[in-house]
């Protein structure tokens, strides 16, 4: 297989603007007595991006930056507290129950842990047939079987008939993740949120899953929001990469642009610690101090300034604007 660049088109499938998810913070009993105003976990705090048909957009960032929450909010698996999600011209956030159910046939999700995301007491067949059943998509048993077999085959599980009656624990890790993919594919979605789909898998089987996902995009034009914390993986599979920090996107651009010429100091630091398969000196890296701060106390000004090696006076009080720095390359920093 050659490079995974997809020519892309301007056929916009999803447009997200100002997406916000704020949770009520879980405060202890005592502290809730002392302070009246309950604090908010601003897990996603104003995110804008769009997704085109047949595109793979990677959402990368450290743990706790709000990647998963963003993905789930688009599918309304968690309720956004603000903003807009336009899917194919319609605002998802205004869908009622029945329209939402229909929407979920078009937009699917694959979870990180292929063991936990499959019901241990459901066989392979019922796992994949379930989406068809709850949406009343098949009129006959034969049709259902056909579609299940087709989805399993699409997900790279050859001999689907043979594994129909197996349970998830009777499959290997790679097969389990393929099963999860098949159960998303069976509804023929246009859009899939893939939340760290390979991070629990061994290196030797990762490539197969990634290749499958890219192949499905090539063949069926499925659009992915690919969530990962691994930038080298993001670069490998995606068309564009968005870097998230503390609930906001700080940089977005084509995969090559973000990795090869990062704009934002945070991206630069992340890129500098991407491992390369040879002995290098550790001196060339920018090691940020500490870990992602708590989304309850988001620093004022630029939210990255306490860890930023390039922070200046201005960064402390003034929030940088998220803007198009060069064509199709966005960033939010005062000094770019």
């Amino acid at each position: 297989m050659g490079p995974v660049n997809y020519p892309g088109n301007n056929n916009e499938l999803i447009k997200i603007s100002g997406l916000e998810v704020h949770f009520a913070a879980r405060t202890g009993f005592i502290s809730s007595l002392i302070s009246k105003n309950s604090s908010l976990v601003r897990a996603v705090d104003g995110v804008d991006f769009n997704l085109r048909r047949g595109e793979i957009l990677c959402l990368a960032g450290e743990s706790g930056s709000g990647k998963t929450t963003t993905g789930k909010a688009i599918l309304r698996l968690v309720e956004p507290t603000g903003g807009e999600v336009i899917f194919d011209g319609e605002n998802v956030l205004q869908f009622n129950r029945s329209r939402l159910r229909k929407f979920r046939q078009d937009a699917q999700i694959i979870f990180q842990d292929p063991y936990e995301s499959l019901n241990p007491r459901q066989t392979v067949f019922s796992t994949v047939a379930e989406p068809l059943e709850v949406n009343h998509l098949c009129s006959s048993m034969e049709e259902k079987e056909e579609r299940v077999a087709e989805a399993l085959k699409d997900a790279g599980l050859s001999n689907p008939g043979e594994i129909f009656i197996r349970y998830p624990h009777e499959l290997s890790g790679g097969q389990r993740q393929r099963l999860a993919i098949a159960s998303a594919l069976v509804l023929k979605p246009d859009f899939i949120v893939a939340d760290e789909p390979v991070s629990m898998l061994d290196l030797s089987i990762r490539a197969g899953i990634l290749k499958l996902m890219v192949d499905l995009r090539d063949k069926k034009g499925i659009c992915y929001l690919f969530i990962t914390h691994d930038l080298s993986l993001a670069w490998l599979v995606s068309d564009r990469i968005a870097i998230m920090y503390l609930g906001k996107i700080v940089e977005l651009g084509t995969a090559d642009a973000v990795i090869k010429s990062p704009l934002h100091p945070y991206t630069r630091a992340l890129v500098s610690v991407i491992p390369v398969p040879k002995k290098i000196s550790l001196a060339g890296r920018t090691l940020l101090k500490g870990e992602t701060p708590d989304p309850v106390n988001i620093p004022p000004g630029c939210r990255f300034h306490p860890r930023c090696p390039e922070a200046a006076e201005r960064c402390r009080d003034e929030e940088p604007l998220y803007r198009e720095v060069s064509p199709n390359h966005f960033g939010a920093c005062h000094f770019i």
Binding site: M1, G2, P3, V4, S204, R206, L210, W235, V271, P277
Partner: peptide, 23 residues
């Protein structure tokens, strides 16, 4: 196979094939 499955951002953008089968 392990080394080629490892993405190298200094190399070419190329999705290697995985090792078939299971351990």
């Amino acid at each position: 196979a392990l080394i080629s499955a490892f993405p190298n951002i200094e190399g070419e953008r190329y999705l290697a094939s995985s090792i078939p089968g299971n351990p």
